[in-house]
Design a protein around this nucleic acid. Sequence first.
RNA 1: GCCGAAGUGGCGGAACUGGUAGACGCGCUGGACUCAAAAUCCAGUGGGGCUGGGCCCCGUGCGGGUUCGACUCCCGCCUUCGGCACCA
Length: 819
Amino acid sequence: MERYDPDAIERKWQETWAREGAFLVPNPERADPADPAPRTYVLEMLPYPSGDLHMGHVLNYTLGDVVTHVRRRRGFTVLRPMGYDAFGLPAENAAIREGGHPRLITERNIASIRAQAKRMGWAIDWGREISTHEPEYYRWTQWLFLELYEAGLAYRREAPVKWCPNDQTVLANEQVVEGRCERCGAEVEAKSLEQWFFRITAYADRLLDEMVQLESWPERVLTMQRNWIGRSHGCEVVFEVEGLETGIPVFTTRPDTLFGATFFVLAPEHPLIPELVRGTSQEAAVLDYVRRTAAESAVERADPAKEKTGVFTGRHVANPVNGERLPVWVADYVVLEYGTGAIMAVPAHDERDFAFATRFGLEIRQVVEPADGSAVELPYVEKTGSARSVGSGRFSGLATPDAIREIGAWLEDDGRGKAAVGYRLRDWLLSRQRYWGCPIPIVHCAACGPVPVPRDELPVLLPEVDDYKPRGRSPLAAAESWVATACPRCGAPARRETDTMDTFVDSSWYFLRYADPRNDRAPVAREIADYWLPVRQYIGGIEHAILHLLYARFFTKVLCDLGLLGFSEPFLRLFNQGMIYYLGAKMSKSKGNVVAPDSIVERFGADALRLYILFMGPAEDDKEWQDTGIEGTYRFLGRLWRLALEVAAVGPPAAEPPDGPLVRRAHATIAKVTDDLERRFQFNTPIAAVMELVNDVYLAKDDPAQVRAVRFATETAISLIQPYAPHVAEELWERLGNERLWEQPWPEPDPGLLGRDSFELVVQVNGKVRERLEVEAGLSDPELVELARTLPRIRAHLEGKEPSRVIVVPGKLVNLVVS
RNA sequence: GCCGAAGUGGCGGAACUGGUAGACGCGCUGGACUCAAAAUCCAGUGGGGCUGGGCCCCGUGCGGGUUCGACUCCCGCCUUCGGCACCA
């Protein structure tokens, strides 16, 4: 018999699909978002073209592919595009290390990854391919930047920023993990620099509140985003500075503890400090402390285990609730960027204030106690109704939630405070001092300030430079003839912005461009975006839980507000696939534990790899690659291959419809596979179900009475495995005398053949299985019980006693209970 | 410290709504085919015990509980992984 040769089969069908444009999805003549034609948008996260496909990609795209095939065969038009997140540091670093232009390195990598993706046989509309580094794409990234700029959502300011000394660029907050650069792991440094920001904080509430529009996102991703945004409700209270005509506001969520405030702390970067200490005896000590803090690394400073440091300013403020004098300190445990950069310190009810007070011998005054009056160890941070105020004037005795509300209202009435909301989220720092990114389309003019490049002059092309090495400023700055330009507003000599954009800007809108990838008048035509989007099913790794997903949601909301889109959430359903480990660790080149998809495809074919990557376990779980596992799925395809060829050799089926247990098994398999894929979003168990069906067919295939049933079951197995292994499925389908499986309707189970003729009845005594027997379907409950009771072994276990209770689960079991 | 997820055979995992724990695959064992091997096909495979061939006991991280019945629900722990962490 002819051997299963995946390489030849897979190439044959890949060429067929390409020739026929089988997976191209043109836009309708006139896109009407109200058009009821069933359509859907399946999208995997944009890959960074590192050169080779890795197993994470294989899992990601094969998942999307199964969804795509099933949806297509259920009558949907499926938008399923592909592209590349092509700007970014790895290509630039390679250029520095090995020479060559980042663009050439990137484009070589894209060519390689594209070829590997095509060899996997994914049903992608290659006609919509985009790459973020192409001028035709980044022109619109710049255009969108200008939209945000003109809407007041992109701005430039001097601010404390996180600087990566290794990559020589600033980083967004989201790109700093435990004080280290998320990309390279270097400890970040604190600097104060003039940088570009997106005002994502203006959307903090909507990023939280519009989560209700999401159909299905993993709860942990929503939780991570909620924590990252970190909204907390409280109030702002002003403390007057003694001897100066000024007040300092603080943000607090615990106004009920105001009576327990015993000191006051400013962040070292607080702008009022120089004025506070000018000419005082503490001036030198305070300024020295501020300098020392500035020299500290972010990691050192952020370590909560570190002993607290600080210095007294010599100044006092007045507590607005009782006029008490509170000493003002400067300490680095207060950060400038949160709240107002100043706090009232209540050591009895805050761990950090408590540690500080203990260290410096400051007063600790309890103003909250358990509602039952029992004694507690300080700090006591309880803030539910099980706590109450004490020693707080007329508020004493109030339950804490009431005290928070009452004291807040009282301050607001007196004009000494107001309700306020604090967010952990900071504005998105988007400028980077690196070459290989999208230029920021701004010109700096001495007279006019920052001026947008006119829309019709976009794109601002990346200039050619010889040296990509970062030196604390963008390599673009060295392209003098590019930098020098005329002010678009007044015509005077001016200089171009030399920073480039964070690559997360590029990927914050790419899913829109796919809908209308060749549009040269707009990033996307609104009616076309509204026709296809939002994305119905988004698939990608958990590493983007905050970064990309938060930024993309922000962009979509902004563009919706600007009238460019008719929806404000980009991804209705999100699925996070797990990571693939090998030899106990995440696959990585540096650890040398990479299994290259390439070499697997060469040995076993794309179909076996596609099947194995999903058979390994639940798609959302992390799991371990096993070399013998891929052999198992390869063997299964060989088994299916031999079966189908045998069936084909027997000849075409007789006309009359088949029946019998095997046919019923096939219908049950259809129902199981369909339910797993469509309702449960579970991809490993359908494969097991088809394997079971094939095992059953093997046991029946030599029985002349079952020729028709064998053929039906074999065709069913092929049809059901097609989304996973489309090439071999197509080949076998053809050899069985059929055609174009990829366009065949997804099989439907026949309800009349779903029920079984008989089932295995489990008989329990006191909940323990004592007997199983095959019984015909359709017996009544009393009949089943009677049957069970007469079994010899059951009678032995009953020991002549009468059951005190009888439980019957129809179609499954009988449980006889004796006391 | 706070928040979240997960612990099932030698291994990856299945068991969907509280109803046969271990489907399917890997590995291993035996058999068929073969001069032989590979490939393939068939059968067996959680642990322990008794044994006239079948039966009994134990078993889903640990300890309790609810229930006729618990991998599944409740309470309390342990371990692993992930996120956040001076955010006032």
